[in-house]
Amino acid sequence: MSEIEPTQRTDLAEQRLTTTGETDETTQAAWTEFQFEDDAKLAVEALDVYYGNEQALQSVSLDVPDESVTALIGPSGCGKSTFLRCLNRMNDRIKSARIEGSVALDGQEIYSDGVNLVELRKRVGMVFQEPNPFPKSIEDNISYGPRKHGDLDTGLLARLFGTDDAEEAQALVERALRRAALWEEVKDRLGDNALGLSGGQQQRLCIARCLAVDPDVILMDEPASALDPIATAKIEDLIEELAEDYSVVVVTHNMQQASRISDQTAVFLTGGELVEYGETEQIFENPQSQRVEDYITGKFG
């Protein structure tokens, strides 16, 4: 785990340029060093990921601001999902994955030895591509996280002794479902099995489940790719709303979606390389790199 000083950053970027041999993009360092006025919520520095001998991410550096939507786009296999999974260390669950570089949450390194993964994932929530509710009731899905963290006590013993937090649980479920714009649709059947919901509802349930833990950052891995257009629109509205309170990072392969919902966009291209990062408007209307322009206009990727 190498600690990297900010001053080293340009060197690293240049070094990458020389190794990849991209002579026509000598100014790339400037594009990927897009700065925000506030401090970054997540600061990623020179992140390399290898699966076995294959490199999935090449020295990616990028800052994610708070209270905004950051979109990660790129062709399939470009490493954008891998990058996302590095942000809450879900890649640790893949045995062959090896990660080098640094990711800081609120200035705190998450890849150092003493980091409590459980705490980290409570603060950095994640929503997956396929809706994956537990085969439990809607209510239990939402309260699952808080219960496991000991914030809510609804166990059998507690219920026997009357010390359970039934009311708190109810309030929490309602709050999370309202926030995920699902409350009106399911309020009469909170006890039903979550697998009986439609795909779009299931995905919003997963978002609500994530919100119930009260994270700072929400990572979403192509959250609408398995859904129909109407359900997709609902999820997109929800993401924009969530950006008022949370830092949302969304992976998508749909460029229109990225341009609709995000504040800033990072473009990954094949080989796990972050090519350009900036304000969404600027990326889509006036990309600096020829390759990004080709990708966005459909000539490449």
Binding site: M90, E119, C206
Partner: peptide, 19 residues
Amino acid sequence: ARRDASAALGVTKWQTIRS
């Protein structure tokens, strides 16, 4: 996917296994 979902909520391994 279920194990991932539980882990992403910050739930420990044993609790994920159990519940």
